[in-house]
Measured scan of single mutants.
Amino acid sequence: MPSETPQAEVGPTGCPHRSGPHSAKGSLEKGSPEDKEAKEPLWIRPDAPSRCTWQLGRPASESPHHHTAPAKSPKILPDILKKIGDTPMVRINKIGKKFGLKCELLAKCEFFNAGGSVKDRISLRMIEDAERDGTLKPGDTIIEPTSGNTGIGLALAAAVRGYRCIIVMPEKMSSEKVDVLRALGAEIVRTPTNARFDSPESHVGVAWRLKNEIPNSHILDQYRNASNPLAHYDTTADEILQQCDGKLDMLVASVGTGGTITGIARKLKEKCPGCRIIGVDPEGSILAEPEELNQTEQTTYEVEGIGYDFIPTVLDRTVVDKWFKSNDEEAFTFARMLIAQEGLLCGGSAGSTVAVAVKAAQELQEGQRCVVILPDSVRNYMTKFLSDRWMLQKGFLKEEDLTEKKPWWWHLRVQELGLSAPLTVLPTITCGHTIEILREKGFDQAPVVDEAGVILGMVTLGNMLSSLLAGKVQPSDQVGKVIYKQFKQIRLTDTLGRLSHILEMDHFALVV
């Protein structure tokens, strides 16, 4: 994948999101292997301009796509893939009243899908469409860049269908997702969380590099694949309309690839034109409109599966009536509230959605109805927002919020430890010299600072030695090549209790 991002070429006709291997024109390309080798690009942008032909009021008969309808489940399912879809609609009884809503608040519980998330729908649909058009064949390999849930859905379907599955996901995604993927037989590649989507090191860039190296491999490409919004247009939206008897006044959905909100909203605009569509985008993402909503100094966020630093091709923002931004604290607070007060075992993005819903639905009156999409299960986040310690460490809970008995030293300040200034190293000294210094002084790690004293990161003896043994660096290389740029900081005025929580999850903390 090139470091400079080429513009994806656009073909003359058809839909841009065809499933299957992508040609340089962004659509299915038939021909000899030699032709494909000559024409197939190194990668295709996940934010390529959409060429979708959908228009409100256009006859369904003019759609270029294969459409399906929700099917009634048999008493005995032939395999677990038949437990994807037909998820329950559940009334939220307490939270709406707590925040003064007059309307009825309903939750579409997508964590009841077989793999635990709304992404099971698009995973199965992308595979079925690729099999139907002859792209996927027995023994082929599926590769997908994902925040985890699409990966789980694909790995689940691949396990049943017999495909090899490789999932490329950023490091910030939970260990629970990784464990589930491994249990399903998927191979996992992790990428830096802070890598831009168009960087060769991003999950998108690495996935395309693997595709170019592995024979008979395919990126189904949830960011561009029409099967993504079509899955929701054909099934999720129809289920909502049936469950609500066609009567709903507002739908609120958090947005990642945009397939969920695009597919549902398009069908609702056709069948229930008075329904307002509300999009939820986390602070630090750029999906919301108008652009002024996205202006923030924050560039990272903890909530998973929603928000991006690019506009995915499948996201149709014209069908969203209003956007709201959400933050991590309210997302996790509301997710825990949904679990504790409503018994809905949902993930953090569901918290984002409901946090926005109780604001947006203030305009609705008694007798009206708001539906929220709860995308995934708490299963993926047992060591994250479900953990009091994690919430404390991230600053989303305060010590006084917890009532468990603490040891005698818990409320003492870090400054009472009488710490001395640490050994520091410059980023320009060599790895070999740094190892000598650390061994001589008896230290395992040291902060790396520039000549102005600005902290650049941390270097550890173990990481340097393993990097040297693996051949990633040489003793003569500058130590700046092996620094940890993500590390926890703590102030002298913070409590030892807070430091204790940090050290339970990290090997060190830097006192500043």
Score class of each variant (00 low, 15 high):
residue 3 S to I: 04
residue 4 E to F: 05
residue 5 T to N: 11
residue 6 P to Q: 09
residue 7 Q to F: 11
residue 11 G to Q: 03
residue 13 T to F: 09
residue 13 T to A: 14
residue 15 C to F: 12
residue 15 C to M: 08
residue 15 C to P: 06
residue 17 H to E: 11
residue 19 S to A: 15
residue 23 S to M: 10
residue 23 S to C: 06
residue 24 A to K: 05
residue 25 K to W: 03
residue 26 G to P: 06
residue 28 L to H: 09
residue 29 E to K: 14
residue 30 K to L: 10
residue 31 G to D: 15
residue 31 G to L: 03
residue 34 E to P: 06
residue 35 D to N: 15
residue 35 D to A: 15
residue 40 E to Y: 10
residue 43 W to V: 13
residue 47 D to L: 02
residue 47 D to R: 05
residue 53 T to Y: 08
residue 54 W to Y: 08
residue 54 W to G: 06
residue 62 E to Y: 15
residue 63 S to M: 03
residue 64 P to N: 07
residue 66 H to Q: 12
residue 72 K to C: 09
residue 73 S to L: 12
residue 74 P to M: 13
residue 76 I to P: 10
residue 80 I to D: 01
residue 82 K to M: 10
residue 82 K to C: 09
residue 85 G to A: 07
residue 85 G to P: 01
residue 98 K to W: 11
residue 98 K to C: 05
residue 100 G to D: 15
residue 105 L to W: 00
residue 108 K to H: 02
residue 110 E to S: 05
residue 111 F to V: 01
residue 112 F to L: 04
residue 113 N to C: 07
residue 116 G to M: 13
residue 116 G to I: 12
residue 122 I to P: 00
residue 124 L to V: 05
residue 127 I to W: 06
residue 127 I to S: 07
residue 129 D to P: 04
residue 134 G to Q: 08
residue 138 P to R: 15
residue 140 D to K: 08
residue 145 P to I: 00
residue 151 G to P: 00
residue 151 G to K: 01
residue 158 A to N: 02
residue 161 R to I: 07
residue 166 I to T: 12
residue 169 M to H: 01
residue 175 S to Q: 12
residue 176 E to H: 00
residue 176 E to P: 00
residue 176 E to G: 06
residue 182 R to M: 04
residue 186 A to K: 00
residue 186 A to F: 00
residue 187 E to P: 10
residue 189 V to W: 08
residue 190 R to T: 04
residue 190 R to A: 01
residue 193 T to Q: 09
residue 197 F to H: 06
residue 201 E to L: 10
residue 205 G to Q: 12
residue 208 W to E: 06
residue 212 N to R: 14
residue 219 I to N: 09
residue 224 R to D: 03
residue 227 S to D: 10
residue 229 P to T: 05
residue 230 L to C: 14
residue 231 A to N: 06
residue 232 H to A: 00
residue 236 T to C: 04
residue 244 C to R: 06
residue 246 G to P: 09
residue 247 K to S: 03
residue 248 L to D: 04
residue 254 S to Y: 02
residue 254 S to K: 09
residue 255 V to F: 03
residue 264 I to N: 12
residue 270 E to H: 02
residue 270 E to F: 10
residue 272 C to Q: 10
residue 274 G to H: 12
